[in-house]
């Protein structure tokens, strides 16, 4: 159980590393947002599950479930809100091919 927990933590750390690398390497804001959010969501999950496996007690697991639910809700909402704010501040990447939101109008 302990070893499995540490393996999960290492996987989570790798995802964090990839997320950071993506934020550095991606060309524009939208790509950076998606790299950062997706990688950190999975990374945080893995690290938290690892911590839960190492300390396999109810008091820890209940807290970890609350944290995971918080991340599940807050991370996508935050990133989508940042992306929308970026869009409304008239930022557009140079190589944008299709803009569905412009066609569809507001909301």
């Amino acid at each position: 159980m302990t070893i499995a927990g540490y393996v999960f933590m290492i996987i989570g750390g790798l995802f964090f590393l990839l997320g950071g690398l993506g934020v550095l390497r991606m060309p524009d804001t939208f790509n950076r947002i998606q790299a950062g959010t997706k990688a950190t969501t999975l990374g945080a999950f893995s690290v938290l599950i690892g911590v839960g496996l190492v300390n396999f007690e109810w008091s820890w697991i209940a807290k970890i479930i609350i944290i995971i639910v918080f991340i599940v809700i807050s991370n996508p909402i935050g990133s989508s809100t940042i992306a929308k704010a970026t869009y409304y501040s008239k930022y557009k990447p140079d190589n944008l091919v299709q803009d569905d939101l412009e066609k569809r109008g507001d909301e």
Partner: peptide, 15 residues
Amino acid sequence: KFKPNFMLKHGSKLL
């Protein structure tokens, strides 16, 4: 300045 969308409105209540 701009309208919050459905996801933000209802997700923040859960949060």
